[in-house]
Amino acid sequence: MKRPDQDIMKYFSGVEEDEVRLIWEKARRKDQSGESAMDVNPEEEWALLQKRMQTARRPVRGVRPGTIRSRRPASKATAAKTYAFITVMAAVLLGGFVMWYLFVPVSMEAPRGEFTTFHWDDGIRVELNSGSRLTWNRSFGNGHRNLRLEGEAYFEVPPSGKSFIVETQTAMVEVLGTRFNIRSWADDPDGRTTLTLVDGSVRLASLLEPESHIMLQPGHTSHVDYHNRAPVEPQPVNTDQALAWRNQGFYFSGITMSEVAAELERRYDSQVVIQNEILRDRSLTIYLPRPGELDSIIETICFVTNCRFEEEQGTIILY
């Protein structure tokens, strides 16, 4: 930027203004690292990115809905040909529509500040935490079973059902009859997906390294993220705590205050800003089975972390 922002200049007048202009003009980056940035060719990096994105895209499964054939009378008359042509066109259009209907993704979401529960006919039950979204194809019931989750959800799957796959930003979870929780928030800086199994069995695989996968035992948790591309060693976990959100509770287990703030923002559909840098990176472990109003949670958290807060036009500021 050639000169300071207008908002800034209005704080200075006369000589001060000239000094600020001089400072602005003469300010230089100190380190020479900036120079090496210029040695990198963006186009080369673009080619690498394309390659990476190609390999990341997994092959489409060979699933197709019942092929639609048109019944065409083998007539020699021109009129009949025209008629046949129309039939074919209609079939193609109908086929196209069916394809579109089956493959255009459907999604269900829990808006910020709300929870959503959903049942499928085959007994699969899903509960979504605030600010989460689950996407699937309408052909879900007929064999093509791929769900995509952004956020956090609890699944109950009757044992008789066929297996299906839940995909998140970093993980692939293959499901048999079971009850489990997946947590995978888009704003998590590590893109972490945490899987907690209540009972039954699930397979957790990394999206980035699909060959690394583990079977999880009931009462255990594991996760994958950008740093842990293979699922980490499963740890025993208190499932009541891990599933506290289903009863509007919170269980923060050693996560940073900025993640805590993001979670509170989603649940209460409000703004929680942390102004203190050190506080933002501080980790917090706390179990609040019945938290009540946002104010009281903030009070508890501030008591534990020894911070202060104020409310300003509906925004909560921690410092």
Binding site: S33, S36, A37, P42, E43, W46
Partner: peptide, 20 residues
């Protein structure tokens, strides 16, 4: 976007990690 923003972001990243 990639071509336009790459070098400025590269320089910015180098403030933190110091390794190209």
């Amino acid at each position: 976007l990639f071509v336009d923003s790459y070098q400025p972001l590269m320089r910015y990243a180098l403030n933190f990690v110091k390794d190209t």
